[in-house]
């Protein structure tokens, strides 16, 4: 189970902007925008409970005031 956390689009991301600036200096002027986020990999016992994982993501891994979450459940 993987959880990706990114800042909401309306929250400015100075870290992403710093990366974008560095890319420009390295000659990658074609990159238009960079948003930096967090990537969590969770291993769970048994079958993942989607509701519980959603709760984990939304109550601890992300701050819903400023961040969005994307859940990726195993697809086997």
């Amino acid at each position: 189970m993987v959880v990706d956390v990114v800042l909401k689009p309306e929250i400015s991301d100075p870290q992403g902007q710093a990366v974008l600036g560095a890319l420009g200096r390295l000659g990658h002027g074609g990159v238009r925008s960079v948003r930096q986020g967090k990537h969590f990999v969770l291993e769970v016992d048994g079958t993942p409970d989607e509701a519980e994982l959603k709760q984990i993501a939304e109550t601890l891994l992300a701050n819903p005031v400023i961040e969005d979450v994307e859940l990726h459940l195993p697809t086997d």
Binding site: L7, I11, S12, P14, Q15, A18, N63, V65, I66
Partner: peptide
């Protein structure tokens, strides 16, 4: 306090880093 939900809003990285 913001993380605990006692106060609204959030605090994040300074705009100038």
């Amino acid at each position: 306090l913001c993380e605990a939900g006692l106060l609204p809003g959030a605090l994040t990285r300074n705009s100038h880093l």
